[in-house]
């Protein structure tokens, strides 16, 4: 993976996207293409891959990691929350996987990593919509892995547990501690813990692994 060119996507702050792309170019001496696009719109996804094709002519790895989380108990779930959650967490991943697999087919190789969640594998109260959207990614992973195996394109998923991000830091103190107590290894996961798992599944270290869901949760029980 060292020396790989990078494509970044963002949809809310073009300046920040361009700045991050410039930082990555400078830090790693590679090309970094920042694509400002709303991935819930199929037409914008198509345009992203046209630009990737025009610039690089190939794609080796796709990481589907865009996601949102909103909690609501059953019976109190607004329709627009269902729509927004599935559009971002699930539909965008499907659109990207469709286009990426076409580019990867040209070279008869590639690795796709979908970021699901321990909530998608185990479920959690108040998170039915999020769980459903992430469980759908597992179905997408398993089916795509079967369809793309003959083209030497691997599709796997990473299911993070409780990870140190803005999302978890905003939890109420009591809820945060409750989650911490459920982690066998006794510490919150770091973003690098997830990145390392993605790197493994994206690299040739996992050349014979496809259709798997790798839990990265420190032994969390939920």
């Amino acid at each position: 993976m060292h020396g790989a060119n990078i494509v970044l996507n963002g949809c809310s702050d073009r300046g920040r996207l361009d700045q991050r792309a410039a930082e990555l170019r400078s830090a790693h001496g590679v090309e970094c293409l920042g694509l400002f696009a709303n991935l819930t719109e199929p037409g914008e996804v198509d345009e992203c891959y046209r630009q990737i094709f025009a610039r690089f002519k190939r794609l080796d790895v796709l990481v589907n990691n865009a996601g949102i989380l909103q909690d609501a108990l059953l019976g109190m779930i607004p329709t627009d929350m269902v729509d927004r959650t599935f559009r971002i967490n699930t539909f965008a991943a499907i659109y990207n996987l469709q286009q990426a697999s076409r580019l990867m087919t040209r070279n008869r190789s590639g690795a796709i990593v979908n970021i699901t969640s321990i909530i998608g594998t185990n479920g959690n109260q108040g998170q039915a919509v999020y769980a459903a959207s992430k469980a759908a990614l597992i179905g997408l992973t398993l089916s795509s892995a079967k369809e793309l195996a003959s083209r030497n394109i691997r599709v796997n998923a990473v299911a993070p547990g409780f990870i140190d991000t803005d999302m978890t830091r905003n939890l109420p103190e009591g809820k945060f501690q409750e989650r911490m107590n459920s982690i066998g290894m006794g510490r919150i996961g770091q973003p690098d813990d997830i990145a390392n798992a993605i790197l493994f599944l994206a690299s040739d270290l996992s050349a014979y692994i496809t259709g798997q869901v790798l839990g990265v949760d420190g032994g969390m029980l939920i």
């Binding site: 199929p42 037409g43 198509d46 891959y49 046209r50 094709f53 025009a54 659109y95 469709q98 286009q99 076409r102 580019l103 087919t105 040209r106």
Partner: peptide, 18 residues
């Protein structure tokens, strides 16, 4: 069909929409 799409894309250096 997907093979045909790939052949066309390669031959004409284009990327087709879904």
């Amino acid at each position: 069909h997907m093979q045909l799409v790939q052949e066309i894309e390669t031959t004409f250096d284009v990327m087709l929409d879904t």
